[in-house]
Each structure stands twice: as structure tokens, then as C-alpha cells.
């Protein structure tokens, strides 16, 4: 096509800039689609709140776009993104000392409508989520990465920057506490 020939032969800086802009937009779109919801869930798991999620997402994905070294794989990219997002969460946690949780209904602009399910199932779902959210942060994050993101222990260790032994210990302690908290609520269906 003529346009493409012009881009490749004319050496016009403006065309190259346009092309770079298209590439950047495509890459930004890809990152947002791939990680925005994940970062939202991570923010909630860390901060008991989705209020800062958009800022954390923006900061994290901007770093990913600015990164010059290529990722080894999609798994490597995902672990890196999670790591940066977790550091941003910890930064906010330290600075704002947020204690109270914010329910989803307080941020209707950010979050898409949830699928309605039976009331009883909703209650059990709320109990399980509440139990996980009452765990200490280090255990909570390990449970989230294992049971929602379905990471293997070695990948969790990589994302958290700790040893595999530490991850295994946190998962074990998290499961033990959850079993105690959910006794009488879920019965034989406990499978954390």
C-alpha cells in the first residue's frame, strides 16, 4: 500500500512518530485488558478498598510501558506487573494507614455490575471473602495468588520476592486460620 511505502522509504519523522503512537496505544490496550481487573482485585486484597485501584493500575501499567528490557515470557510479565502493583499498594498502605474497608457499592463508577446469584450462595460467598480478608496481609496475598490467580508456589515466591519455603508456610498458616473461621459455614466443602 502506498501509505506503507511512504512510511518505509520517505524517512518522514512525523510518520514514524505516528507509527510509534499506534504501537504504544495498542500495547497500552493490551496491558489494560490483560491486567487492569487483576490489579483491581489485588488492590482490594491489599487495601480492603478499590478507591486507589485506578491510580495503582495507571502507575503500574505506565512502568510496564516504559520498561525497555523485554520480558522473558507472558508469565514473567505477569509476575513483574503483580510485583509492581503490590509495591504500589504497600506504599499507599504505609502512607494512608487505611483501616476501614470500602464496599463495592461505594465505587459504582469503577466496577462493573456483579452477576446476581441465589441469596444463600451470596451469603456463603460473602462469608468466605470476609474470612480471607481478615487474614494478615502476607497470608491473604498468598491465598489470593494461589487460589484465584492459580499460581504455583515457585511463581508466588517470584512475585513476592521471597523463598518457596516462606510461601508454603504462609499458605499453610492461611489455610489453618480459614478452616477455623469457616467452621460451621462450609462444612465438607472446605478445600483451601
Amino acid at each position: 500500500m502506498r501509505g506503507e511505502e511512504e512510511l518505509s522509504t520517505s524517512g518522514d519523522g512525523r510518520d514514524r512518530q505516528l507509527l510509534r503512537g499506534h504501537v504504544a496505544a495498542a500495547r497500552a490496550e493490551q496491558l489494560v485488558q490483560r491486567y487492569a481487573d487483576c490489579i483491581l482485585r489485588l488492590s482490594y486484597t491489599y487495601l480492603h478498598s478499590t478507591q486507589d485501584a485506578e491510580d495503582i493500575c495507571q502507575e503500574t501499567l505506565l512502568k510496564a510501558l516504559r520498561r525497555q528490557e523485554p520480558f522473558e515470557s507472558e508469565e514473567h510479565e505477569r509476575a513483574w506487573v503483580l510485583r509492581v502493583a503490590m509495591n504500589a499498594c504497600k506504599d499507599i498502605l504505609r502512607r494512608n494507614r487505611l483501616r476501614s474497608s470500602v464496599s463495592l457499592e461505594d465505587a459504582p463508577e469503577l466496577v462493573a455490575p456483579r452477576v446476581q446469584s441465589e441469596a444463600a450462595e451470596q451469603d456463603r460467598m460473602a462469608c468466605v471473602l470476609d474470612a480471607v480478608m481478615r487474614l494478615p496481609a502476607s497470608l491473604r496475598i498468598a491465598i489470593y495468588l494461589r487460589y484465584y490467580e492459580e499460581y504455583e508456589v515457585r511463581d508466588i515466591a517470584r512475585a513476592l520476592g521471597c523463598t518457596e519455603a516462606a510461601v508454603a508456610a504462609r499458605l499453610s498458616r492461611g489455610r489453618r486460620r480459614l478452616r477455623g473461621m469457616l467452621k460451621g459455614v462450609v462444612g465438607d466443602e472446605f478445600d483451601f
Binding site: L104, Y147, F192
Partner: peptide, 16 residues
């Protein structure tokens, strides 16, 4: 199960 309920609860978190 509990892990299914947990996943379903978090599935509700999605940016508009």
C-alpha cells in the same frame, strides 16, 4: 466449595 466461592466473589471485581 470454599475456593469456588472465593473465586466467584472476586470475579465480581472488574473495571467498567
Amino acid at each position: 466449595s470454599t475456593s469456588e466461592l472465593y473465586r466467584e466473589a472476586l470475579d465480581g471485581f472488574a473495571l467498567a
